[in-house]
Computed example of a mutant assay.
Amino acid sequence: MDYRVLLVESDRLLLERMAQVVNDTPGFTLVAKFQSVSDALGQGTVFQPNLVLLDIEQPGGMGLIAEFRKIYSEAAILCMGEKWQAERASQSIKSGAKGYIIKPFTGMELQEAVETFSRLGSDAGAETLVFFSPKGKSGKTTLLANLAMALARKVREPVGIIDADLQFGDMAVFFNLAPHTTIVEAVRDVKFLSPASLSSYYMSVAPNVRVLCGTPTPNMVDRIAIDRLEQLVSMSRSMFRYLLIDVPAGFNPTSIAMAENANTTFLVSMINGAYEIEHMKQALTVFRDWENVEERAKVIFTRVEPCDARSKMELSQKLGYPVTEIIPNEYVIVSDAADKGKMATDIRPDSSLSRQVDRLADNIIGRHHRIRWDRS
């Protein structure tokens, strides 16, 4: 699609600079530029733009979105600001804009911003899924990785993974990656990034699946400030259809903050004796403070044998809480896949593990439309 751009920027030097970028970017033509909002609203329609780049960092800037939507009903509105602000970006979407871009921008950043809203639509923003375990050795990393692949395969849209298990994250090992940038650099730089520039910190591991790797060494956990990690997650949401976050086991500042900012938190535990049910009961006492707890907190047990409807029902009864999914003990398949640098669901798509992961993905996709952009 070719874009006929109307540019509205109060700073004259920025206006000229960005006008040049627009004209130099393939697929974009600058049809009009204005410093004055009133002039843009009163005179711009004659140019019939289908994309408005709107500066909202002026008095009443957020309120301008409704005015421009009314006058330019056939055009997409892309808001501009000098730095990324999650709340402002989210509010601009809710007000009817298609996205938010940092100014001044490059041609590549403009293209990526437009591609994002074209791909995700006006209600763009990932459904954020956090994977939490009351204790370690739950199988959540294996589940998360295979689920990300299943979601990407089914929806054919971008899926992101953030390894926020800050001391013992192993996504890089799991995917056999040697990252040049990790969550450490992304959190450090987040105040100066936009979604387009943040994209380079993620590594591609499969079509439509990208990973932000965890800290290279456990002692780097001190470099991850929680407020900046939350900013990173908020910005990442504008890049993907689904965002899956691996967090440390147990309750700690990272796992709590990520759960509070997620649409859904999956509590994952591996059945290996009688204690897992009690551990899960204790963990659920914390999440029960949420008003809509059964919508936001989902329980998954792994290595369940036999992995059938009866086992799932018995686990739910013992727990006193619905069990969303059970995952079979497929250690041999998982191990074989890891040795080959592949996902278990790829090498054995007919396995019980693959079927259960696919069912979980279908469940997530089926309720996706109800909870997008309900958080900033």
Rank of each mutant, 00 (worst) to 15 (best):
P195I: 07
P195F: 02
A196T: 09
S197H: 05
S197N: 02
L198D: 06
L198H: 13
L198Y: 05
S199E: 09
S199K: 10
S200Q: 14
S200C: 03
Y201D: 08
Y201C: 08
Y202C: 01
Y202I: 00
Y202D: 04
M203I: 01
S204K: 14
V205L: 13
V205W: 04
V205D: 11
V205M: 04
V205R: 01
A206S: 08
N208C: 13
N208G: 01
N208D: 04
V209E: 12
R210K: 11
R210E: 10
R210P: 02
V211N: 07
V211T: 07
V211S: 11
L212Q: 07
C213P: 03
C213D: 04
G214K: 01
T215R: 01
T215E: 00
P216S: 03
P216T: 11
T217Q: 09
T217F: 08
T217A: 10
T217V: 11
T217P: 00
P218K: 00
N219D: 12
N219K: 00
N219A: 03
M220D: 04
V221M: 10
I224A: 00
I224V: 13
A225Y: 09
A225I: 05
D227L: 14
R228G: 06
R228N: 15
R228Y: 06
R228P: 13
L229C: 12
L229H: 15
L229A: 15
E230C: 07
Q231I: 14
Q231D: 09
L232R: 10
L232A: 09
L232I: 13
V233A: 08
V233Y: 10
V233F: 05
S234Q: 09
S234A: 15
S234P: 09
S234V: 15
M235I: 06
S236L: 07
S236Q: 14
R237M: 06
R237A: 05
R237Q: 14
R237P: 01
S238R: 14
S238H: 13
S238A: 15
S238Q: 11
M239T: 03
M239N: 10
F240I: 14
F240T: 10
F240M: 13
R241S: 08
R241Q: 15
Y242L: 07
L244I: 09
I245Q: 12
I245Y: 01
D246P: 11
D246M: 06
D246F: 13
D246W: 05
D246E: 13
V247F: 02
V247W: 10
V247E: 09
V247A: 04
V247L: 06
P248A: 03
A249Y: 07
A249K: 12
A249L: 10
G250C: 13
N252F: 04
N252M: 04
